[in-house]
Design a protein around this nucleic acid. Sequence first.
DNA 1: CTTTCAATATCGTTAAGCGATACTATGCTA
DNA 2: TAGCATAGTATCGCTTAACGATATTGAAAG
Lengths: 97, 97
Amino acid sequence: MMRNIFLGFIRIHILHHANEGDIFGVWIMNELRRHGYSIGAGTLYPILHSLEKEGYLKRRDEVVNGKVRKYYRITEKGVNALEEAKPKIKELVEEVI
Amino acid sequence: MMRNIFLGFIRIHILHHANEGDIFGVWIMNELRRHGYSIGAGTLYPILHSLEKEGYLKRRDEVVNGKVRKYYRITEKGVNALEEAKPKIKELVEEVI
DNA sequence: CTTTCAATATCGTTAAGCGATACTATGCTA
DNA sequence: TAGCATAGTATCGCTTAACGATATTGAAAG
């Protein structure tokens, strides 16, 4: 029951965090686990790729501690999508809560 | 983007309405359309069936205008699930909004 | 007993989620 | 400079969910 909702929300959460700073796959997985949710790599990475492909995120490769990380940051299009989504989500949630 | 979120929410919406009164398939479809969302029969009915099977809803058949309707109403288990879900949803949404 | 109609049900296809496993590129060690 | 260890990313194959389209149901009307 909650898993569905969480999954529906995951793209919004990703955009939200990518709006506040640079994020990367493993960081997101940890962040979500901190909040009691978990997502596998096989789910997360395809989502990141599609968000990038659709222009909501942009990618920047960087070497950190000798390992390559793919940092993602929100784009203008992503910001717009996020801002458009917020009131709709609010409406959707407030009816029930 | 919004479709995902809406779909994640649909079970909660169904439970919510089934908590306020008797509901049935077509009514739900219309109710959602009023709010700007749509769901096909091929998606909705399997969801209703599974919610019933898992004990969140109970069904009652009734004849209305010479047609058989399957009315659904929330169960005790459904009420519990709904009440448990609310604060989690709130938390999930408030971080982003 | 045939037709009509609102409503429900399901079939076959497409898309999404997921665990498991493999890959990549760098720094470290010697 | 060859070899190894490791964080992080990528993808394969399977399972489950969403969906449009089409079929089925059963009471009532004629």
